[in-house]
């Protein structure tokens, strides 16, 4: 089973990397980009029988820092 975890900085937490990407897009002439937020995608290859609850536990314990990040889990 595969799971895909998306980790993003929470709304309200300044994302300096996203801001840099936004500036770079503007410099390249891509007008109208009002905001960029950069996150990460973590793909897990899991043994059969793993549940969404298992992946959630992994996120809480290690994959995301919930002080600054939110996460979502996609199974399949």
């Amino acid at each position: 089973m595969k799971a895909r975890v998306h980790v993003m900085l929470k709304n309200g937490v300044l994302d300096p990397q996203g801001e840099a990407v936004r500036h770079a897009l503007g410099a390249l002439g891509f007008d109208g980009v009002n905001g960029v937020r950069q996150g990460k995608v973590i793909e897990l290859d899991l043994a059969d029988g793993a549940t969404e609850a298992d992946v959630t536990a992994m996120c809480e314990k290690l994959l995301a820092n919930t002080v600054i990040e939110s996460y979502s889990v996609e199974l399949g």
Binding site: L9, V13, L14, P16, N65, V67, I68
Partner: peptide, 17 residues
């Protein structure tokens, strides 16, 4: 220490990158 939760908060990428 922040990641363990012993101290509050987190350290983000420097604002100037």
């Amino acid at each position: 220490l922040a990641e363990t939760g012993i101290l509050p908060g987190a350290l983000l990428r420097n604002a100037g990158l």
